[in-house]
Simulated assay, not measured.
Amino acid sequence: MAFGRKTGGRKKGTPNKRSTNHALRELIDAEGIDPAVALMRIAREAEEREDYALAVDAFGKILPFLHARPKPREFAPDAVVELEKRLAAARVEGTVIAAGDESLAERLQRAIARQQN
């Protein structure tokens, strides 16, 4: 077993993302084509032919050129717990109003009080 010698990884001269993208960019520039414009043209023509599946697909591929993906929302755990408590209280209140039963209302109020503690 050889120690200290790197044995894996990319071989010298193997194309990587940068060299591949550079070659593609040169080809696109040589042709004078903008991929976003070409996709827009395809989408519009598909729309005119009422080929909505192709139009939606082409518009979907154009979307990242126009808008960034929304960031996922993060919520504080305490805020989520508080929201759950308020939702439970609203459900109980709705049940009490719908039932109109005084004894049920009292039992539900006690349940709310226990949940809040």
Rank of each mutant, 00 (worst) to 15 (best):
K17R: 11
N16P: 00
Y52R: 06
L66Y: 05
D101C: 07
T7S: 06
A90E: 11
T7M: 12
L24K: 14
A46L: 02
P77Q: 07
E102F: 00
A79V: 12
P64W: 08
I97Y: 03
D101G: 04
D101K: 07
I33C: 02
L54K: 13
K61R: 15
K12L: 09
R114G: 00
F3H: 13
P64M: 03
F3K: 10
I28P: 00
D51N: 15
T95K: 04
E74C: 03
P15D: 07
S19I: 08
V56G: 01
K61E: 10
I42A: 13
I62V: 15
A98W: 00
R25M: 11
L54V: 13
T14R: 13
V96S: 03
E50F: 05
L83T: 10
A111C: 10
E50D: 13
G9F: 06
R41L: 10
K17E: 09
R49L: 12
D51Y: 02
A111M: 14
A111E: 14
A46D: 09
E102S: 09
M1K: 08
G94D: 03
P72Y: 00
I33N: 02
R18G: 01
A111R: 14
L104D: 02
R110V: 10
R73F: 04
A113W: 06
A23T: 14
L83S: 07
A38E: 12
D57P: 00
R18N: 08
R44C: 00
A98T: 09
L83H: 07
Y52T: 05
R73M: 09
E50H: 08
K6G: 04
I112F: 07
M1Q: 10
N117K: 15
V80Q: 03
K61Y: 03
G4D: 07
E74Q: 14
K6Y: 07
G32A: 04
F75Y: 15
A30C: 01
A99D: 14
A36D: 05
A105N: 02
H67M: 11
V96T: 08
E45R: 14
R49P: 00
V92A: 15
L39M: 15
F59K: 02
E74A: 09
A58W: 01
A43K: 02
N16C: 10
A23C: 01
I97V: 15
A79Y: 01
D51H: 08
I33M: 07
G32M: 07
K71T: 08
R49F: 04
I112M: 15
R10A: 14
I28F: 09
A111L: 15
I42Q: 07
I33F: 12
A79K: 08
L39I: 06
I42G: 00
L54P: 00
F59R: 12
E93F: 09
A53R: 14
A98F: 02
E48W: 05
L27H: 08
N117Q: 15
D34G: 01
K12Q: 12
R86T: 03
G32Q: 04
V56N: 09
T95W: 09
P35K: 01
N21V: 03
T14V: 11
I97N: 05
A55R: 04
I33L: 15
A68N: 05
A88Q: 07
L87M: 10
G4V: 07
